[in-house]
Design a protein around this nucleic acid. Structure first.
Length: 821
DNA sequence: AGACGAACTTAGGATGCGACTG
DNA sequence: CAGTCGCATCCTAAGTTCGTCT
């Protein structure tokens, strides 16, 4: 049986693929099974140190990275739709009524304004009735997509005490779900003295907020309070100096501001091979002409006669000059950036200041799609305030300073409770406006949010069912772009955690599902067979779902459900293997997927059937699409979709590979190499490739030089040790003994350093065309890595850099060394 | 049931920047 | 102290999924 499974070793180990009798879709039953199911994983402790397993993985699946082959099929270019028109004016969506209030505030008292000072009141939420606001339990029940446990309920602090019992129950269940693991020590450890870790105020402002110890919203809302400063716009266009010109047919032309700006976009890309491509040039020229005055238009009719080199040179000089700037100048720019970050880079969401992910609006420029993109070269328009939709809570509107005046300062300090302060002139003491102690509401920071002078937003809405702060519609594809929070934020973290919990639930029923789709290979119905074979590919090869795409609008790429006949080849026998399928197609980002794998006979026969009477450009799975597939998966397990398989298989493979590759006796660098190899196995599975770094060869050489030098040094050190020993034999005094010790240490040090370098070289070589980052960031349950680090005493910093540690703070805090995915 | 739109995750490449080196 | 190198961060395109509308 195991021979059938190509490179995907993890699956062999994590359970049989053979049918088991569980066919029912009842999730309650599922729960009962929970305990038994994954104990078996435990016993596979081995001290086997060979890397053969890893090698298997990487060798069997060799791929090339080739972006977009040419000659894509014309049939994909007929439909053209006017999307933009339809999208226009859809934005009048209902705003969620915002009798908003705060809760979950880690113990801050809820206050109300103490006296109605005549100063324009800052946004303080008025009295509200909680009953309206918090969803009733029934309501909550009906919501899906919560974290994995069924009756998770959010309750505001205030009524929390009454619900303590429920919460306890919930927690118990959570732990049960995680079964084999002992109670979460981490939580207890940290929570000690904090009484559930929830009620106490954050006395120490440095202490990081542990959102994962709090309860989640279950009413579908994403936040109660949201305030931010809006986006940072791209700097306005700066005209070229008058001596820098475009040359047309050898003659200089001074362009108007609009056409000039677009011309500079092209000039800046002149060195890029993009600008030599026909489609790029055609698209660019068409859009450029739209920006020209009629006079310019009549003069400039052939892009080939345009000479941008003068402009291009100018920009090169500019960037050179920028590099040559003095330290002070650079420091000044850095300071300014920091100021902007502090002002716009954070928002307040539910009483916590959180980092925003991308607070800058994308600047205008020429669109560069990936692969053979039909729209490459088109002008990406400048985004104006009138294009922007702001999302925030109703009660977050800013206090504007009276006309013609401004506040001394607007501060965003959510560590203090005052709203307004000033220094009085008698004692020079600071006066405050604060909240009324009886208030149940606490107000967070104030932030003026207005469109730049003379402009206005397209819309301001208050929708707490979504997580974005700012959105606009982009003009190339007509799609919506968003400003959202940073991965370290609660809102992203919770979702991430939930994703892995869903994958862990899949782990528990994956055997049943595999059994089912194997059965379905025999189905009388074509659509069922197709579904089952597609699912098999998604599971075994970690393919993406593969939605249909609008033809001619984007590069021609496919995923599982959208595979075409031309993307696979069948071999009855090849390279001594039977029933081999060869995949060759462009996937997401036009990254080539190439793989040759043996499949089971039944799959092979099915594929032959699917191919009958079809043209190369026909769909392989003509009775299937992602919607059908996902609907089916949803019936098999709550929350299951095609992409959960990728997450599951990635994470289980990491766990598996770590077990196999980690040698207890290895030193730290060798352990890290093992980790990277396990990570690499996943990256190979998920087909995460990268272009070999331009400096790869050189950097390998440098490393080799270092290794050689270290070898010499070691040789020398050994020689010295020898002579010191000899010397000690003769002299037999303390000093000589000490010298021997010293030399011994030196040898050891050199040995270790050499080893480290060699390991580094191996690692880098193996990593030439493989990108580890994507899987690490998006597919591998961080708790697996954290547990591994704890188990083998490897510092977490060796595995995750600062940003990653921020993103995975939840996992680092909660996972113990015995965590099992 | 299929088209469409919105929201959110996943992705590789470009750019920035700090540490190291010569 | 300039130049190099490698990693971190930024950027934004390209996916998936889900809900709504027809």
């Amino acid at each position: 049986m195991s021979g059938d499974h190509g490179h995907h070793d993890s699956q062999i180990d994590s359970g049989s693929w053979v049918n088991d009798s569980h066919k029912h879709k009842d999730k309650h039953k599922d729960k009962e099974r929970k305990h038994k199911d994954h104990k078996k994983d435990k016993e596979r402790e081995k001290s086997k140190c060979s890397n053969s397993e890893y090698k298997n993985l990487s060798e069997k699946k060799h791929k090339d990275k080739v972006k977009h082959k040419d000659g894509s099929l014309e049939r994909h270019k007929d439909k053209h739709r006017d999307k933009e028109k339809r999208r226009e004016d859809k934005s009048k969506s209902s705003s969620v009524d915002g009798k908003l209030k705060k809760e979950k505030e880690n113990g801050f008292a809820r206050w109300e304004l103490s006296d109605p000072v005549t100063v324009e009141p800052p946004r303080i939420k008025s009295e509200l009735d909680d009953d309206d606001f918090y969803p009733s339990p029934k309501h909550e029940k009906s919501l899906k997509r919560e974290h994995d446990n069924d009756d998770y309920e959010f309750k505001p602090k205030k009524i929390k005490i009454e619900n303590e019992k429920k919460a306890k129950k919930r927690r118990q269940e959570e732990d049960e779900e995680e079964d084999i693991k002992p109670k979460k020590k981490t939580r207890d450890r940290k929570g000690a003295g904090e009484g559930d870790g929830k009620k106490k105020a954050k006395k120490d402002p440095e202490e990081k907020w542990k959102w994962w110890e709090e309860e989640r919203y279950t009413d579908g809302s994403k936040w109660r309070f949201l305030e931010h400063k809006g986006p940072v716009f791209a700097p306005p266009y700066d005209r070229l100096p008058s001596n820098v010109k475009l040359y047309y047919d050898g003659k200089p032309i001074k362009l108007g501001a609009q056409a000039e700006e677009v011309a500079t976009f092209f000039a800046k890309m002149l060195d890029h091979e993009y600008t030599t491509k026909d489609i790029f040039r055609k698209n660019f020229f068409k859009d450029w002409r739209k920006e020209m005055t009629s006079e310019e238009k009549s003069k400039i009719s052939d892009l080939n006669k345009c000479d941008f080199t003068d402009m291009s040179e100018y920009f090169k000089t500019q960037s050179e000059a920028k590099k040559q700037m003095t330290k002070e100048e650079k420091l000044k720019i850095k300071g300014e950036n920091e100021r902007i970050l502090q002002e716009y880079g954070f928002c307040v969401m539910d009483n916590h200041k959180e980092r925003i992910g991308n607070f800058r609006i994308e600047p205008p420029g020429l669109f560069r799609g990936r692969g053979d993109h039909p729209k490459m070269g088109m002008l990406k328009r400048r985004v104006r305030p009138e294009d922007i939709i702001i999302n925030c809570s109703k009660d977050s509107t800013h206090p504007k300073a009276p006309p013609g005046t401004r506040w001394k300062e607007v501060r965003h300090d959510n560590k203090v409770t005052w709203l307004v302060s000033w220094t009085e002139n008698i004692q020079g003491s600071i006066k405050y406006i604060m909240l009324n102690p009886s208030s149940r509401i606490k107000v967070s920071s104030t932030a003026p949010l207005h469109a730049p002078p003379g402009t206005r937003w397209k819309e301001v809405r208050h929708d707490n069912k979504v997580t974005w702060l700012v959105s606009w519609t982009e003009n190339i594809q007509g799609s919506i772009k968003y400003i959202m929070l940073n991965p370290s934020s609660r809102i992203k973290g919770e979702k991430d955690w939930q994703k892995y919990e869903t994958a862990r639930r899949l782990k528990k029923c994956v055997d049943r599902l595999r059994g089912q789709y194997r059965d379905d290979w025999k189905s009388k119905e074509m659509r069922i067979r197709q579904r089952a074979v597609a699912l098999y590919f998604i599971d075994k090869l970690a393919l993406r779902a593969g939605n249909e795409k609008e033809e001619g609008e984007t590069a021609d790429t496919v995923g599982c459900c959208s595979l075409r006949v031309e993307h696979i080849r069948l071999y009855h026998e090849i390279d001594g293997q039977e029933f081999v399928v060869e995949f060759d197609f462009l996937g997401k980002d036009s990254i080539r997927y190439y793989n040759k794998i043996p499949v089971e006979k039944r799959v092979f026969k099915n594929l032959q059937l699917f191919l009958e009477n079809k043209q190369p450009e026909d769909d392989l799975f003509d009775r299937l699409n992602t919607s059908i597939l996902n609907k089916h998966l949803q019936e098999l397990m709550d929350g299951l979709t095609a992409k959960v398989f990728r997450t599951y298989n990635a994470s289980i493979t990491l766990q598996q590979q770590l077990k196999e590759l980690t040698c207890p006796d290895d030193n730290i660098p060798a352990k890290i190499l093992s980790y990277n190899r396990a990570n690499r196995a996943v990256a190979i599975l998920c087909n995460h490739q990268r272009a070999p770094p331009k400096t790869f060869e050189k950097s390998m050489q440098n490393l080799q030089t270092k290794i050689d030098a270290k070898k010499d040094q070691l040789f020398e050190a050994r020689r010295e040790l020898k002579s010191a020993k000899a010397d000690a034999k003769v002299r037999r005094d303390e000093k000589a003994k000490k010298a021997v010790e010293m030399k011994k240490k030196a040898v050891e040090r050199a040995e270790e350093q050499l080893m480290k370098l060699e390991v580094q070289a191996t690692d880098r070589e193996e990593n030439k065309q493989i990108a580890l980052g994507t899987s690490k960031l998006n597919y591998l349950d961080p708790r697996i890595s954290v547990a591994w680090c704890k188990k083998w005493n490897v510092a977490i910093e060796k595995i995750y850099n600062k940003t990653q540690r921020e993103k995975f703070a939840w996992a680092i805090d909660m996972a113990d060394d015995d965590f099992e995915f």
